[in-house]
Amino acid sequence: MDWTEILIDAATASIGPVAAAYALAAIGLNLQFGYSGLLNFGQAGFMLVGGYGAAITVEHGGSFWLGILVGIAASVVLGLILGGPTLRLRADYLAIVTISAAEILRLIVRSGWAEPLTNGVFGIQGFANPFFDLNPLATAGRYGWGDFTFQGRQLWVMIVGWSLVGLATLLLWKLIASPWGRAIRAIREDEDAARALGKNVFGYKLQSLILGGALGGAAGMLLAVEQQNIVSDSFLPQLTFFLYVIVILGGAGTILGPIFGAIVFRFLFQFFDGFMAQSQAEGWYGDLLDATDAQQIKLVLVGAGLMALMVFRPQGAFGNREELLIDDN
């Protein structure tokens, strides 16, 4: 077993473009779930409209930069459509509606009916050339130390991706420290108390849903750009569940939690892949497991991990244990 290779692969994945995209989407989810108490189970849907908004625009003659605007606008509109009817209702309605909407969108995008626009199950490829044209690095060159290297093309996505993560974190930090941030935290604690004090609870929740959704849309675009390829089935409900693991792992309602969570999550994910691949190749399990079983075992562990985190360490790595112990009656 080559532990160095496994660890280097895992470390590479933990700061790679996908980790940046996950972190960005998780920052949005953290604003919604961690700070505002909104149960958005459809962040994958926001990512989908962001990515597809950009890809479809380019595919149909628009410029890449217009595509980015369309992608962000699409996720904002989705937030308005979903938030409007549900944010006045109990929290559980939002959960049901967001997961349903994300699935509706995925089903529509992959259907034959939408194929002229979305290319159905095959998705859209090669729409991000203007982005890569801006790359100042040598596309095929390798950058890094020893075995720990990235391709110039990949590194360019990482630089842009992590810069976006940094900007989003700064924005969130500024917002949460402002009276606006205090208001959404107060609403998370008790909506009625906020209403009785003259606060427009619905407006705050809608703003939080839309802002978090727009960050999700940007993350969806980042994923699509990195692959130069967008397919509907990248946006399965489990993508949202991964983001919950990330947010809770890092600590819901903490500024740096989503970044930390995304890095650790991607590290563990890749570490498990590498370990299983090598141990399988060495015949540790005989005929007991085949190659796809490893993927499924991983998802069982993700699910069990989400449960365990929520039950035993809901404050995550950065969360304040004391804050959580408060008996809220």
């Binding site: 489990q238 569940f241 989400l306």
Partner: peptide, 18 residues
């Protein structure tokens, strides 16, 4: 209840893949 819903999500993912 919100935390419980998240727990049920984890349970669903684990069971389904099991």
């Amino acid at each position: 209840n919100i935390a419980m819903m998240v727990v049920s999500i984890g349970l669903a993912l684990a069971l389904r893949n099991f």
